[in-house]
Amino acid sequence: MELANQKILVTGADGFIGSHLTEELVRRGHSVRAFVYYNSFNSWGWLDHAEPEVLKSLDVFAGDIRDPHGVREAMKGCDVVLHLAALIAIPYSYHSPDTYLDTNVKGTLNVVQAARQLGVAKVVHTSTSEVYGTARFVPITEEHPLQGQSPYSASKIGADQMAMSFYSSFDTPVAIIRPFNTYGPRQSARAVIPTIVTQLASGIEKIKLGSLHPTRDFNYVADTVRGFIAAAQSDRAVGEVINVGSNYEISIGETARMIAEIMGKENCFETQADEVRLRPGKSEVERLWAENRKAKELLGWEPRYAGKEGLRRGLEETVRWFSDPKNLKAYKAGIYNI
């Protein structure tokens, strides 16, 4: 479907990926309503830092994805919904799992229920590579078994199934995009790449990390954003689950060394395992590596930051952003961000 002349709602527009997606849609000339999390500070999250030209074009709705009435109100008059609002921190899910059910599962129910009632033309629901758990085979296709190895991943499996059940039961036009390990400017320091960069940029030489041996498929945020837009545009995406990943596997330890090299600190840092940052043994996802053939076939999407060279380019852009003092000061590098 053509997005021109369509009103697009982005839930979670105040977050890391959501803010990049919202800004890109506005830059492309689309009409966007940004659903941000209501708070008494009237903060729009990362959108507060958007360019004035972007902000003046935005229609901002402050609400709570857990509230069905507010969600329905936000969706009125919208043709396409890109649903990113979610709780995503894995460690926080260990001690506050109820909030993940309310936000991720019920929040998704609220979106697809309103989409059904309002006759929305397309819902793109956000999944995560964490739903696969530790890879049983690689590269991981969309047919890989789902494994809830943390309350977070279990809640996202539930959310995915809720979204797809509305497609199966009511023909609600739902597509599911499953990003792998997105990174880039603005990401929370609860994620490993910002953890490494902020510690090094703050002059910490003995950086604290969790496990170094697990592998990940890192996807630069600009590629993930392009995946969302391609899924919104593609009629072939309806009823499908689609991986968006770089099809390149690298360990956490190797990633840390690459970042240190980019920052010119490869000879003056060392990593140490921090007990508080380690996942429970059976909860650790040991290996993630995306098969992205389906995205290429259905969406015409492929990563521009692919392979080792692409990862390095993405990390260089990420390091550049985090190393800017005005950005770095927003992060507490010496404190573990759960």
Rank of each mutant, 00 (worst) to 15 (best):
H125F: 00
I250P: 09
F35C: 01
L25K: 06
A306G: 03
D160L: 08
T141W: 12
R257F: 03
V244G: 01
G15Q: 05
R216Q: 15
I196C: 12
N39V: 10
E130L: 14
T318Y: 13
Q149W: 10
L288E: 08
R33V: 07
F322M: 15
P303E: 07
L311M: 02
L298E: 08
E73Q: 14
P280H: 10
S165A: 03
Q199F: 12
K206R: 11
N337M: 11
R28A: 04
K76P: 02
H95E: 10
Y100T: 11
F218A: 08
N243W: 13
Y248G: 02
S323T: 12
S234Y: 05
V241H: 10
G184R: 08
R33H: 09
S211F: 03
W301T: 01
I88A: 15
L200Q: 04
E291V: 01
A237W: 15
G310P: 04
E73S: 15
G184K: 13
L84V: 02
D67Q: 06
G300V: 08
S40A: 13
K296H: 10
V111M: 01
E309A: 13
H83C: 05
G18E: 05
Y183G: 03
P280F: 05
T99F: 15
V10N: 02
T198M: 09
Y167V: 08
G281L: 06
N39F: 06
R313L: 14
S168Y: 15
Q233E: 15
H30L: 14
N219L: 15
R33Y: 09
I252F: 01
Q161C: 07
A189L: 07
V26D: 02
T224P: 01
K156D: 05
H20E: 00
S169Y: 13
A163E: 02
V221D: 01
A295R: 07
A290D: 06
Y248I: 07
V123T: 09
A34V: 09
P91K: 13
K326I: 14
I177V: 15
F269N: 06
R304K: 13
W301H: 03
E284N: 07
E24Y: 13
I204H: 13
E240F: 07
P97T: 07
V81E: 02
K7Y: 10
A295V: 11
H213I: 03
E286A: 10
A163F: 05
G119H: 14
G133P: 10
Y94D: 00
G15F: 05
P303W: 05
R33P: 15
G63Q: 02
A34I: 06
V71L: 05
K106L: 11
G184L: 12
W44L: 08
S283Q: 04
I262K: 11
A135Q: 03
G15R: 04
K76R: 15
I207Q: 12
E24H: 14
M263N: 11
V244P: 13
V131C: 00
A330W: 08
